Amino acid sequence: MAKSAIDLNALSAAELIELIKEAEAVLATKREGARTELVEEIKVKAAALGLSLNDLLGRPRPHTNVRRPRSDAGKTVVAKYRGPNGAEWTGRGRKPRWLAELEAEGKTKEEFAL
């Protein structure tokens, strides 16, 4: 890599900013040219093997960070526990207050199982 004849210490801040902008523009142009050349080279090699560029790359799977919903989401679930006042709980989600209070008194949730 050849060292430039520009004395960076002699440049003002504004001149350095302008130099950086020009260098970034040249870099972007060179990268795009290299990318185009690479794609063409790969296309030629793939065609020699009877493949297309899409055959080589395959179909990209969409990537999401979203969990799949439950298969039974939105469906009514049968209650597993019934309290002394008739309140019911399916066993999902946060424990209901009535059950927590009864467990604090020494009872177990199995005593209220249906």
Rank of each mutant, 00 (worst) to 15 (best):
P96K: 09
P69S: 13
E105Q: 15
P96Y: 10
M1F: 04
A113T: 09
A25N: 02
T90R: 13
K21N: 10
A13Y: 07
A104L: 14
E41N: 14
L38G: 05
K80V: 10
V26Q: 15
L53H: 00
G50C: 00
L99T: 04
G93D: 10
E24N: 13
R67L: 11
S12F: 02
D55V: 02
L53Y: 06
T64W: 05
R82T: 11
L99E: 02
A104W: 07
R35S: 02
S52Q: 02
R82V: 11
K43M: 05
L56Q: 00
G86S: 06
R67M: 08
E110M: 12
G74I: 05
K3C: 01
R59V: 14
M1E: 00
R68I: 00
R31L: 07
G93V: 02
K45D: 03
T90Y: 09
A2T: 01
P69Q: 08
E105A: 13
L11Y: 02
V78T: 14
T64K: 11
I20N: 01
K43P: 00
L16D: 04
E41S: 11
E32T: 12
E41Y: 06
S12M: 01
E24W: 12
P60V: 06
E18V: 12
L49H: 12
A10P: 04
G93P: 05
A48T: 03
R67Y: 11
R70Q: 14
G58E: 10
R67P: 02
S12P: 00
A10T: 10
N54H: 02
G74S: 06
G58P: 00
K30S: 06
W89K: 04
A13D: 08
S4K: 00
L102K: 15
G58N: 04
L53N: 04
L16V: 03
K109E: 07
K107E: 08
L57A: 11
D55K: 01
Y81S: 04
A113R: 13
I17H: 05
L114F: 12
V78E: 15
A73T: 02
R92F: 13
R94F: 01
L8P: 00
L57I: 05
R70P: 01
G86N: 10
G86H: 08
A28G: 09
R61H: 12
E15A: 09
S12T: 11
K3A: 03
A5D: 07
A104I: 01
V77D: 02
R82L: 10
A14S: 08
S71V: 05
E24L: 05
I17E: 15
K45I: 07
E18F: 03
V66T: 15
E15I: 06
S4N: 03
A23W: 05
S4F: 05
K45H: 07
L114K: 15
R31W: 00
P62Q: 13
H63P: 03
E15H: 06
G83W: 06
A79G: 09
G91T: 08
G93Y: 02
P96R: 04
E103L: 11
R94L: 11
G33E: 11
K43R: 15
A25R: 08
P69A: 15
E24P: 00
